[in-house]
Design a protein around this nucleic acid. Structure first.
Length: 636
DNA sequence: ACATGGATAG
């Protein structure tokens, strides 16, 4: 055996329970002489710890406590009620050496509770005590195996000739899938002559988890008699890999093939709508789930819907679902808090945080991401500092680079750029690109050219620069009117062959999501869209709007710079929204990059001119434009 | 005893 594992450091030997005195007169008291058969029946119907202690005491009094089946059931019932400590002490107090069922049950209780190292230790003990594992044992222990130990177990499986057991094969596949070893999983799958629906589903999940969604689809297409789990695995593969449109479309295929969806389907599809910012589709799936008996007040489903509504910029809907969740856990609170934060409703985020702590719910590191980013969006410097320290002092949560990133954003955006820089230097971890980007962005915002240049040059010299670095560097110079250095930044970008990610915005109209690239001419309604843009241009000019052509980095004349700005992807999407929806309908845009300053000004004006609410979700946050003003208060 | 599963900076 190649497995190297440690023996449990502590074998709990807690005394037997002594609660029997108070229950001796109870009507549910077992008969005076408890027989093994009767004890087993009682244990099978036992659902609470007090009841279990009662039966356990009776078994002790009757002297049947070491009866192999009674002991097994006691042990298993303790495990099922979350008292693994008692399961272990029963197990290790056995006089006879445990058989394979006892070992397997114990290993399973640990493995299924993600107590992997304990499960592995027990498995190791089992092997050294000379008991041969069976198919159940392997299928349990494989859940706890990292790749190396998984391979070792695999070779044991082969030797033990259990390799064709369906449960064993599926967990082997799953083990390779978890370890990211698609090749071994595929090999295993390809060599199977009798694939079952479950093994195919495991293979689909494996491909999907490792990003080969198209390979997953091939397996999916070749699988016959697919059930809801199989469909969900494929749908979620699309969702988890940034292909939400395909997820939605496959969900519709599932409905038309008469497969009943379940709550897991809703989780996936809600997340797809969240990614798309597709409120209409999101509302549809919410209503559809409700009318098909899915409990949207259940924490997991409710939370997925809360997140979906937040990411579609509809906080009212999100809050309604949130308030309807029966047993709100920390994940539900986190998603609502983060949702308020990303939408710029910082006060609401902080209020919810205080509600949550008042309910004695323990915040997590993600809660602090939420409240710290809320502080960043609202310029709440003191509150940000206070929360950052409270995280460590009051909740013993060690700040991660993301938390430093938030605090650095809070400080630097508010103008404390030097203090933020000092914080970066004092962090216990290496700053990453994102963090440098935050600081650079603040340098640009506050015209701190010297520090901005220092950081940017450092990033360029160390090969850490991305297109954003060059753009920011160039913008820093542009905001100072230093055109020579703007040109130099542009030249550097060319020299390093840095490609700028093309801007792309999308909008949902009638349940369909339309995408627009910058300068896109491919939409069938392109003519109307550009006519609308021209109309808007006139209206904007009449209101004294002057294009911020200095933001354009290309080496072209003024008129061309103006044209470049006017076809930024969000403007095409907004124009399309204006011509495709009734007057007064809010327009919701999702953009892959940050909104530029010029588009931000223009969108404010468009909201004024057209009387429309315009909600723009950019790479970082939401902007809600109403009547000429933006919810961010121009603090972004 | 196996397969699907809600929240994460800028």
């Amino acid at each position: 055996m190649m497995l190297t594992m440690s023996i449990p450091t502590r074998l709990p030997l807690s005394p037997p329970p002594s609660t029997s005195t108070s229950t001796s007169t109870s009507t549910s008291h077992p008969s005076p002489v408890l027989l093994p058969d009767r004890a087993c029946t009682l244990l099978d119907g036992c659902a609470t710890i007090p009841r279990l202690l009662e039966i356990h005491a009776a078994a002790l009094r009757a002297g049947i406590h070491s009866h192999p089946i009674v002991n097994f059931k006691l042990q298993r019932t303790y495990a099922s009620l979350g008292r693994l400590d008692r399961s272990l002490s029963l197990f290790f107090s056995l006089t006879d050496s445990p058989n394979v069922y006892l070992w397997t049950s114990l290993i399973h209780s640990h493995a299924s509770r993600a107590l992997h190292s304990q499960a592995l230790s027990l498995f190791s003990l089992m092997l050294s005590s000379g008991v041969a594992p069976n198919a159940h044992t392997y299928s349990s222990i494989l859940k706890s195996c990292p790749l190396n130990q998984g391979r070792a177990v695999h070779s044991h499986v082969v030797k033990s000739s259990l390799a064709n057991e369906p449960y064993v094969r599926t967990t082997l596949l799953d083990m390779y899938a978890r370890a990211g070893d698609t090749e071994s999983a595929s090999h295993l799958f390809e060599t199977m002559t009798d694939r079952t629906l479950v093994t195919s589903t495991a293979m689909i999940t494996c491909h999907a988890k490792n990003g080969s969604v198209d390979d997953a689809r091939r397996v999916f297409d070749s699988t016959i008699d697919r059930d809801v789990v199989c469909w969900n695995a494929m749908i979620d593969g699309y969702t988890q890999h940034g292909r939400p449109n395909e997820a939605l479309s496959l969900f519709r295929d599932m409905l038309s093939s008469k497969i009943r969806f379940n709550d897991v389907s809703v989780l996936s599809v809600a997340s797809a709508c969240a990614q798309l910012g597709a409120l209409e589709s999101g509302r549809w799936i919410h209503a559809y789930a409700k009318s098909n008996g899915i409990d949207v007040g259940e924490a997991q489903v409710g939370t997925a819907l809360v997140d979906m509504y937040c990411k579609c910029g509809s906080l009212e809907d999100a809050r309604l679902v949130f308030d309807g969740i029966g047993n709100k856990d920390v994940v539900a609170w986190n998603s609502m808090i983060v949702g308020y934060a990303v939408n710029g409703l910082s006060r609401e985020a902080l209020r919810l945080f205080s509600d949550m702590t008042q309910l004695k719910l323990r915040p997590t590191d993600i809660t602090f991401i939420g409240v710290l980013s809320a502080c960043g969006h609202a310029g709440l410097v003191d509150e940000g500092r206070r929360l950052f320290h409270s995280m460590k002092e009051d909740y013993a949560i060690e700040p991660k680079i993301e938390h430093y990133g938030c605090l650095i954003d809070v400080l630097s955006r508010a103008g404390h750029v030097e203090e933020a820089y000092e914080l970066v230097k004092s962090m216990p971890m290496e700053p990453d690109q994102v963090l440098w980007g935050t600081l650079l962005g603040a340098c640009k915002l506050h015209g701190n050219a010297s520090l901005g240049e220092e950081i940017a040059e450092f990033l360029v010299a160390n090969g850490l620069a991305n297109s954003g670095t060059y753009t920011l560097l160039s913008n820093i110079y542009a905001s100072k009117g230093d055109w020579k250095n703007v040109a130099r930044a542009r030249a550097l970008m060319k020299e390093h062959k840095i490609q700028k990610e093309p801007g792309c915005s999308s909008i949902e109209v009638d349940g369909r999501v339309y995408e627009f690239l910058m300068g896109d001419l491919s939409h069938p309604k392109s003519g109307d869209i550009y006519a609308m843009l021209e109309e808007l241009r006139e209206a904007l000019k009449a209101r004294g709007y002057v294009p911020r052509t200095e933001l354009v980095l290309h080496d072209v004349d003024e008129a061309e710079k103006e044209r470049v700005l006017s076809v930024h992807s969000e403007r095409l999407a907004i124009a399309f929204g204006l011509i495709s929806t009734r007057p007064g309908t809010p327009i919701r845009i999702v953009k892959n990059l940050r909104v530029c300053l010029d588009c931000h000004e223009v969108t404010k004006l468009i909201s004024k001119i057209t009387g429309r609410r315009i909600v723009v979700r950019d790479r970082n946050r939401f902007h809600h434009f109403v009547d000429g003003a933006c919810s961010c208060g121009d603090y972004w």
